[in-house]
Each structure stands twice: as structure tokens, then as C-alpha cells.
Write a protein that binds this DNA or RNA. Structure first.
Lengths: 338, 338
DNA sequence: ACAAATATTTCAAAAGTTTTAAAAATTTTG
DNA sequence: CAAAATTTTTAAAACTTTTGAAATATTTGT
């Protein structure tokens, strides 16, 4: 194995000099530094991360909580962005294991000397919840995505403004009877609901309570059921907003089963903007989340905080997306609006 | 920081004794061992991975090549399986960075002391290809998924048999005019083609050359175009097989645009069995790959090889999936078969 | 040219763990 | 009960790197 010592012998220098040269530290003459780099190259030297970590207590490693979410394209994109950003800054990423009795997230992170932690909303149960809190309350730099912890930095997609924007868009297309099928309880959902109510109020749109129906994210069956309920309203909505693009598929199936056409009879709007949306026929109008931006920003924030704790600003950073029009929303004529 | 030494002082033992006790090594009396474990627990001790790695030259870390594939559900599932399996065996996983001039996959893996490497078919370009080969030819244990390297273990989904099974299924449903839109060149595609031709020959199905059309994986637009071509055949196929489920969406759009119904006028068959397939209307008949099995098996193989090199058996391990029937395939009556 | 200042290089220690060989304590055997 | 065998414990070295202090060499000002 070729180590810093091998190089030092070959160059007739001390290991200290070699270390400094390799790290571009002052205290070694330019010629010798060049010579060292040259030799390292020839010998095929690469630094031993473990030794470096042991000595410096820095691992250039970011721990990441990421559970059961890979199947959602939104999270996949976030992960790609995290990976890409971390790589550019010279960091590796390590998945933190599911917490067990003898080792929680925090213990795992410490054992691996993680320099910081990224919490990407894991589908955690009650037990894991405690382990997450332990992490959030630790001395480690932590940045969370789509989840808020006191005193911590959070990066999240627009939730209030996005739904407002959607409602405005639909209103602009002539819709005033807008139904909203929303996801299960949580910060994200309550914010989206707030956005929905606010936009409706601002635009003077009345919202019958039966137009707001609960369902779950990523569960087409729930949305199918919710859609059926909506179709039974005395005054049928002209447009239905779904919790997300996948959930929309359930609504689509239900509408089709009832012999209704999209957007001829009912317009639809998704959320997330996954690739599939543009491929469906009719293409799904949706709100395109900037998953890449969210992942990249969170990672940048975390690394900045790692490298200079003064950079750590607790609070929520919101990354906005944009309405992506599609064939599922029909422009209503005056007559249709009634 | 609480280290092995802290424990040794508290227990009045040497650090060596503590190390042995903690690792369940012989040479320390049961009572003292218990006492050490107890104290470690109380003090909240966790071993320093860097120090351990430095000394033992084992990192309990698996390097993984994984690029640009997260957006495909098939690969997401594989990654989840890898993660889960590695975790159960006490290993962490580290993404290997994109190769740069000064650091290829191999260098990164060595720098981080990875104990073994998992190559999950990355969408690599020509330059990365060289870095992959370097890895595959290294002394490190390597297991590849869906790609073959001489002298290495490969875990892959069924490619020949799967397509044979599909054709038999379609034949059983009364189809004999079966078209195949296939993905871009590569081992996977050529195997699937081989399976297609073999099954057709065995069943006595004639395959006009115009029934086999090239496209790309995960590219609906390609498949839309290919579908249009197929519809221009003098004798129109009764069923079209697509490269994958996402690609099918392009075909679906094209057929709809031409005013043809699925499966009334044309039956369709996908590949991969992603979740969406069951949610579409009509539900997509597809071949469900056992992504979890592939990921788990590959990881098991790799870890076995790491822990006992004698376990390393070069060759291809095939994990089979299964035909998943769906609404896009119509059972043809005698008359329709013509 | 010489002391002072500056730049370069080397030395030695340290980080936390494992491992080996040797020492000490205990148990078994003749 | 002493000697031999076995078990338990200890001390020290090693793994590779970084770092601050000490030592050496070089340059500058007078």
C-alpha cells in the first residue's frame, strides 16, 4: 500500500512535508511541493480517508435519513440533487440505518463521524420519530426537507403559494366550482389547504364544505373514492384538484368509469409534476415542484453550516415551483360557467 | 468523547481487555466482559468507525455505482433492497462519485476503504466506461446488476425467459400477430429479442421483419413513433409489446390519437411492472420484474464474497419475475384471429 | 558581513482502535 | 506441593494522517 510515508521516502522528505504539500498548505517550497504531487501521481497514491477522519474529526461525509420514499419520483429527484451537490463540494453521503434499540440515527451518525445530517422526510413511525428528534436536538448540523424542527433549517417546496397559484390559474380558465381532494394530515397538507381557502376568498369563490375531501398521498384508490363523492354533489364541481399526480390516476379511472370525459365534463389538476404527467393523454395539468432545487439548496445549506457554523440560519427556506398547464384543464366559456 | 479508554479506566481494566470484551473475542472472563458491556452502555459509548477501519483495513462499507437511474422505479426498488440487505448485515453504503480526471471509481472506493463494490448499471458514457472497467478488473470484490464483466458475478432479471413467457401468454390469449418494440442496443435488449424470436419459432408464429421496431427505453416519444409505423403495416398486429411501462404511455397516446381503442383494436404489453401499471385504465398488462430480489441477491452475494472470498462465484444469477395480466390485452375469439 | 527576520523543513505527538507477544494469575497434573 | 498447563490480563506497537513546536536554512536590513 502506498502511503504518505512511501512518498516521503521516495522524495527524501519528511512525512509532514508531504502532507502539507498534498494539502496545499504553506510551509513547503513550491519545487518540493510539485515534486511531491508528481510522485504521488506516479505511485498512484490516494489519501486514506479513515486516517484523515481519525485525526481531523472530519469525515467529509453527510448522513442522510431517507426511508420508503425512493419510489416517489419527487424524492428520487431530491436524492439525485443531494448526491450531485455533495459530490461537487467533495462530500460523500451515507444512509443512516433504521434505528434499532442499540443504535439510533444519532449513534450511527456519530459512529461514522458524519459532519452533518440531512433529514429527508422519512416515512417514520412513532419509534423512529423519537430517534429523529434525538438527532434534531443534537449538536450536529442538521437540515430538514419538508419537515420543521425548532431551531433548525428547513427547505421545502411552496405549499401555500403553490395552491394559491393553482387556484388563480383555474379561475383564469373560467373555473369557479373547484374541488380539492387533499392528502393526510400534516404540515404540508394544512398549508396547502390554507392556500386553497385564501385564494378562493381573495377571488370571491365560494367553497361548499363538500368540495374539500380528504384522501391520502400516492393512493389512487383513495382519490377514486373521493372523486365519486364529489360527483354526487348537488352542484358538481367543474374542476377537481388532486393530492398528487399519482393520486390523480385514481380519479381519472373513476371519471372514466362513470362515463365522464376529462376535460370535457370535469377538469383535473395534479401536484408534483412527475414525468408521467406530460406523457398521459390528456396530459395532466400539474404543479411542478422544483425537487432538484430543494435537494440542492438543502445540501448547500448543510455544507455551509458544516464549514462555518456561523452560516447556520434556523428557519424555513421555500423553493417555488410553477404551474404546468396540461390537457386536463378545459377553458370554460361563459355559458358553461353558468 | 467517550472512548474505549474511558471504559477501561472506569472498569479498572486495560484497553485491550475492553476491546476484546466489546468484540466478543476470547481471552476475557465472562463477568468482566459483562461489566464492560454494561459500562459501555451507561457511558453511551459507540465505536469510532474511522479508527477501526484504519487498524483493520475493513470499513463495513459498500461502494455503489448508481447514476441517473433513480427516476426509474425499477432501480429505486433495487436501491431500497440493497440498502435494506446491507443494513441487516451491518454494512453501510456509499455512492461512488462520477469519475473525474484525478479520481475514478476505483480511487474513490479505495480512498474510502470500501470492502466491496456493487455496480448498478449506471447510464455511463464512454469515459465512465473506462473507469468501470478499471473497477471490474481490480482486486476488490465486485457484483454487477444487469451487466456482465468477465470473471465477475452478475445478478440480472430474466431477459430471455421473460419475453418467451410473455409471448406464450399472448399466444394463449389468441394473439399470433405480435409486434415487438424494443429498447436500444445492449445485452438486455439482445437477450429479449432472442427470447422473442425463440418463443415465436417454438409456437409457430411468423414474425414479419416490420413487426420488430427499435426505440429506446423510457422514451414514450420513441414508442409513439414506432407505434405509428406498426399501424401502417399491411397486416396490422393485434398486439404490441413495448420496451417498458413508461414507453407504453407513448404508444397509448398514439393509438388514442389514431382513434384506436386499447384493447379493443390493439392489445398492448409493457415491461417492468411499475406501480403505475396497475393504476392506469385500462390497467397495463406487464412483466413484473423482481427488483427487490435482484437488489437483495446482489448484495448478499457481495457481502458473502467480502467475508469469505471462497464464496465468490463468477457467473450470472438470474432472478425471475412474472407475467402480470391486465386490461390492455384482449382475449381474441377465433374470428378475430382470422 | 552579521544579527535579525523570514521561510522552509523536520520532529514528535496525537487521534481511537486492534492485535501480538509477554506477563501475571489461575487451574490442573504428577 | 511444586511444576506444568491453561486462562486472563497487560503493555506496546501499529494503522495513516495532521499539526504545532522546534530546528534548520535562507533572505533582509544595516
Amino acid at each position: 500500500m502506498v502511503t504518505i510515508r512511501t512518498i516521503s521516502e521516495k522524495c527524501g522528505l519528511s512525512v509532514a512535508a508531504v502532507s502539507k504539500a498534498l494539502n496545499g498548505r504553506p510551509g513547503v517550497s513550491p519545487e518540493k511541493a510539485e515534486m511531491v504531487r508528481q510522485t504521488a501521481q506516479e505511485l498512484g497514491y490516494f489519501p486514506n480517508a479513515a486516517a484523515r477522519t481519525l485525526k481531523t474529526n472530519r469525515s467529509m461525509n453527510i448522513g442522510i435519513l431517507f426511508k420508503n420514499v425512493l419510489a416517489h419520483e419527487y424524492f428520487s429527484v431530491i436524492l439525485e440533487a443531494v448526491r450531485d451537490t455533495a459530490e461537487k463540494r467533495g462530500y460523500d453521503i451515507t444512509f443512516l440505518n433504521n434505528p434499532s434499540r442499540e443504535q439510533g440515527y444519532y449513534e450511527h451518525a456519530k459512529r461514522r463521524q458524519c459532519d452533518g445530517i440531512l433529514i429527508v422526510q422519512p416515512g417514520y413511525g412513532e419509534d423512529a420519530r423519537a430517534a429523529v428528534r434525538r438527532l434534531a436536538e443534537s449538536e450536529l448540523p442538521v437540515v430538514a426537507i419538508d419537515d420543521v424542527f425548532p431551531g433548525r433549517t428547513t427547505v421545502t417546496g411552496e405549499n401555500v403559494a403553490s395552491v394559491e397559484e393553482i387556484v388563480r390559474y383555474l379561475y383564469g380558465m373560467g373555473h369557479t366550482r373547484i374541488a380539492f381532494i387533499h392528502g393526510e394530515n400534516g404540515d404540508v397538507t394544512s398549508q396547502r389547504l390554507a392556500g386553497f381557502y385564501r385564494a378562493c376568498r381573495d377571488l370571491g369563490i365560494a367553497v361548499p364544505s363538500e368540495y374539500v375531501v380528504p384522501a391520502r398521498y400516492q393512493e389512487p384508490a383513495d382519490s377514486a373514492l373521493a372523486t365519486r363523492k364529489l360527483l354526487q354533489c348537488r352542484v358538481r364541481p367543474t374542476c377537481i384538484m388532486y393530492p398528487d399526480d399519482i393520486a390523480y390516476l385514481g380519479g381519472q379511472a373513476e371519471l372514466e368509469a362513470q362515463g365522464l370525459s376529462i376535460p370535457g365534463d370535469v377538469s383535473c389538476f395534479g401536484f408534483d409534476g412527475i414525468r408521467m404527467a406530460g406523457v398521459l393523454r390528456p396530459s395532466l395539468a400539474t404543479y411542478r415542484q422544483n425537487g432538484w432545487g430543494i435537494g440542492a439548496t438543502a445540501t448547500e445549506q448543510l455544507i455551509s453550516a458544516i464549514e462555518d457554523p456561523k452560516c447556520y440560519v434556523p428557519g424555513v427556506i421555500t423553493i417555488s415551483g410553477s404551474v404546468q398547464p396540461g390537457g386536463t384543464v378545459k377553458r370554460l366559456t361563459g355559458a358553461e360557467q353558468k
